[in-house]
Simulated assay, not measured.
Amino acid sequence: MTAPGRRVLMTADAVGGVWTYAVDLGAALARRGDDVTLAVLGPAPTEAQRRDAAARGLALVALGHPPDWLAEDAAAVRAGGAALSVLAARGGADILHLNHPALGADSAFACPTLAVAHSCVATWWEAVRGGALPADFRWRAALHEAGLAAADAVAAPSAAFAEATRRVYGFGTAPLVVPNGRDAPPLAAGAAAPAASVLTAGRLWDEGKNLAVLDRAAARLPVPVEAAGPLQGPNGARIALHHAVALGVLDAAVLRAKLGERPIFASVALYEPFGLSVLEAAQAGCALVLSDIPTFRELWGDAALFVAPHDDRALADVLQRLLDDRDERAERAALCRDRAARYTVDAMVGATRTAHATAAQIPAVPAPAARATAAGASGTSADRGGR
């Protein structure tokens, strides 16, 4: 375990699940005596996000640089890494918790570094498109690989994604597994049975979420399929819905209330390193219908129902079965809520502090080959990930 009172500098961005993860984890570390600062990349947090972070004891510092997935070129990422290095030194950080590993590709940090691989373009491309990485992805993948290689320790949120990261980048060992966690809302005594409705939520614009399949399945169902989240991303990606009902971006309280109705929660993602929205649904007591991918199988086992991710007919059939069978819907909801009890903030922070200690005890190993690849953005190592 790391000692209390550590100064932790953690990167975050205000778009998607990394923000939720960083604020939950940072607040839990702060409650245990650590001094936590979030170095925010990319678009500025909303006023609500700022208030929430401040209320939970977190300091925010705008780094003034984009995350690698929004950067225009490798130079912009290297500039962000240099700014982060200065911030870590000036703040006397004891540990750098790098949620954006590419920032460590070409930077020297004065403190131990834990790089957390939440996702990356190479594993995304392999799962969603396949084939050789395009040029715009190759340099991003090269920076990500170099950042992982330069870190004192590396973690991933699931064993399935840890293994995908090891395999795609050709590492000898897989990252440490530190599952994400959230605090479950209390299930009210005498709560109504799970609703005969269907919901999905998340970054709907991301092609890896595979929303088009759920949209087609919605046309076959007698109840509306509701989708909460943005249809357009900050990178310009977008999706149109033809059958599902777009709810837009809901604030946290509204989404919790929606999940509190305990609808069937569906996700047929092609790519999901963990899936915080799925966890939130399970914690609320929703039955889960998920794509049959390694991450979901690992995390949800026999509790969820699984379908082939491209088969909208099979998806509609499974959803219809649960809509028709109130008892099975309630049974699946209970199984998913029980399974979700594994993935708490307490469990996440305990495993993270152990990973921080691992990073602090292992001296950094120079990775000149990886750094040279990143600096030149040649894409040679990233091509291995596009197999």
Rank of each mutant, 00 (worst) to 15 (best):
L25M: 11
A330D: 09
W19L: 08
A253P: 03
E272N: 07
L259H: 09
A174F: 06
F137E: 09
W139V: 02
V121F: 09
G301L: 14
L176S: 11
V254P: 01
A303K: 07
D327F: 01
H243C: 00
V8F: 12
G81K: 05
H356A: 02
E272G: 03
W125E: 09
A382N: 11
H310K: 10
G208C: 04
Q49W: 09
P186E: 09
A105I: 15
A287T: 02
R140I: 04
A110T: 15
C286N: 01
G301T: 15
L148F: 02
W69S: 01
F274L: 00
A374T: 15
A127H: 05
V278S: 00
G80F: 13
L288R: 07
A151S: 08
S378T: 15
V86G: 10
G275Q: 06
H243L: 02
A71I: 06
A282S: 03
G170S: 12
V198C: 03
L204W: 08
D152C: 12
P45R: 00
V121L: 11
R313D: 15
G17V: 03
I293P: 01
G130W: 10
R31F: 00
R129N: 08
L70N: 00
G33K: 05
R166P: 07
A71K: 04
D136H: 13
D35L: 14
A218S: 01
H97I: 09
A364W: 00
V177L: 12
A27M: 02
V40R: 03
E280W: 05
